[in-house]
Amino acid sequence: MTDEELILEFQKSNDQKAFEILVERFKNPLINFVYRFLGDYEACVDVVQDTFVKVYRYKDSYTSVAKFSTWIYTIAGNLARSEYRRRKRNSIFSINDYGEEGENYDIPDNKFRPDVETYNKFKAQKIQEALMKLKEVYREAVILRDIQGLSYEEIAEILKIEEGTVKSRINRGRAQLQKFLKNIYKD
C-alpha cells in the first residue's frame, strides 16, 4: 500500500495498523532530517514524535491533493524550526554561541552520536558543525536536497516557496558550506 492509501485508510476507519506502518516508514527519514537541522538528537526525537502526534490527532486535515511525504515533512519542518528558534532564544549566554555569522547552535551531544560509530568521525562532525553555521533557510534546503535526496519540486512544496527560490537557496547554502569547510575541501 502507498503512503496516501495508508493515511486514507487511517482517516476512514481509524486503523491504527495503517498509522503504525506510516510511523515505521517515516520515523528514520524524519529523525535524520530533524537531527541535521537541530544538531541535537534528544530534541530531534521529541520533534519527530510530536510530528506523529499531530498526524494522529489531525489526520483529517490531510487532503489527497498533496503527497503524504510532503505533508509530514512540512509538519516536521515547522516543528523543527519552532524548536530551533526556542532553543536559540533560550541560549543567549550559552557556551555554544560560536557561529561565524551570528548563528547560535548547540554542540551535538557527544554521548550519543550515531554517525560517529559508522563514519569518519572527524569529517562528519565538521560537516554537521558547518551545517549548523548555515542560515536556517539555506540549511533546510541543503538538508532536504543533498542529505534527504528530495526533488526540487517536493522541496518547493514542503517549504511553500518557488522552485527557483529552492535552487537559489541550495546553491547559496552549498557555497557557504564549502567556505566553512575549506580546510577539508582545499582543491
Binding site: 528514520n28 550515531p114 554517525d115 563514519y119 562528519a124 560537516i127
Partner: peptide
C-alpha cells in the same frame, strides 16, 4: 564550482535512526 566531494559526503553522511 561546488566541490563534488562535498556533495558526495553530504549524500553519504551516516543516517541517524530513531
Amino acid at each position: 564550482n561546488i566541490n563534488n566531494k562535498l556533495l558526495d559526503d553530504l549524500r553519504n553522511l551516516p543516517k541517524v535512526s530513531a
